[in-house]
Design a protein around this nucleic acid. Structure first.
Lengths: 211, 211
DNA sequence: TCAAAAATTAATCAAATGATTAAAAATATT
DNA sequence: AATATTTTTAATCATTTGATTAATTTTTGA
């Protein structure tokens, strides 16, 4: 049986399987499923092309695996924030915005990748995803309660989610166009994203004040 | 020389060239450049595959053309709104949000298509795009002036654009995920987007009230 | 140490796909 | 009507690319 090298030098000494998966995520994220060639992935991983199929059977299988793991991680991280019974709505927004802003500054093309592939294959990926729990999260309870108490204007909670996620994520999705139209350089753009970590929570608070 | 059929039955009696371009936009939009096959396009257009190359030389050329036209139209529409000297900031936001919400309800996968392809090929497409004028638009002048007068909190105008566009467009980009996570059906989802036509302008107004 | 199992490689295959070609059909020109 | 030009088609080509195979190397376990 294939034996994983023990985690001595965790970052450097990876299993072939792990090297392939890492490379796959990188290449898929950069090029999208359709444009990514298995040869790109094997090259990025520094392994022979045949090994990819040896370990994962096919490009599709590998993609599905990587994609599912990525999405699961994404949703899990979100649920961790939203299901925290110790934090208020405002705090959850703050935590979400800062955490995901920082994540996305590391991996700026993750959102576009996820949404694009999700569009290409909605049902298949959605099926093996779970995460329907998000709308049974403690956060949603808090929002509904706040609405009952007149603290928030009554509206579909999805609006709240769309606003929070949209304001945070959209700059990364629209970056090429936004930067081209506005003429700002990468450094300035990053500065703006940085600013938004504190701005978005304030904005959301304001939006949700009035009815 | 190729002769365009005169525009008698404009919608039905299209030039072969036009049929191909329409089909191309449809297929590219649905599948993305990489996954779109020239055979898909020729089939969608109801013409022989060879005609595609006869008229447009290559898949790349056809794509570039269709993409450039689409983007130009998009930007042009935006500039029309933003350069109107007769409308206030608030009115511009209203007009933008309603107009583009309606457009996107007709062509929901346009944004994801545009942003994805723009990411794949930022410089090439950006180059033949123009549209840098957006940040010299009358709208930007208005925003800066409002900031000078303390009517708006001082911040980079790009924040304003990102918020307006993001709040409007993100639901369409995130639809598959958002719908899966929230469990709302397509009808409800459309209802929410409809609501947002009036909500977003209000939200923006609120966001921009505070300092 | 040695044989079995697992991992890796180079070479090759087969299907998909963008593009071309040569012939046929349709249209325009005189 | 006759001919030239343009448009369209079917057939084919050449390349790309995901996948397989058979041989080789490495690792494991007795």
């Amino acid at each position: 049986m294939a034996k994983a090298k023990k985690g001595k030098e965790a970052a450097l000494d990876l299993t072939t399987e792990e090297k392939i998966k890492n490379a796959a995520l990188k290449v898929f994220t950069k090029k999208g499923f359709a444009a990514a060639r298995t040869r790109d992935i094997s090259e990025e991983a520094g392994i022979n092309l045949a090994l990819l199929n040896y370990y994962f059977r096919s490009k599709e299988k590998l993609f599905e695996l990587v994609m599912t793991e990525t999405l699961r991680g994404f949703i899990k991280g979100m649920l961790e924030i939203l299901n925290d019974t110790e934090t208020s709505i405002e705090e959850k927004v703050e935590i979400f915005v800062t955490r995901y802003s920082e994540l996305l500054m590391q991996q700026p093309d993750l959102p576009l990748f996820i949404f694009h592939e999700l569009k290409m294959n909605p049902e298949q990926l959605a099926s093996k995803l779970g995460g329907e729990g998000l709308f049974k999260s403690y956060f949603i309870k808090q929002v509904k309660e706040a609405m009952d108490n007149g603290k928030l204007p009554r509206m579909h909670p999805l609006h709240f989610i769309m606003n929070m996620v949209g304001l945070t994520v959209f700059p990364f999705i629209g970056a090429p166009l936004l930067r081209h139209l506005s003429g700002v350089d990468a450094k300035t753009f990053n500065g703006l994203v940085e600013e938004r970590k504190t701005l978005i929570p304030k904005w959301i608070k304001m939006m949700m004040k009035g009815k």
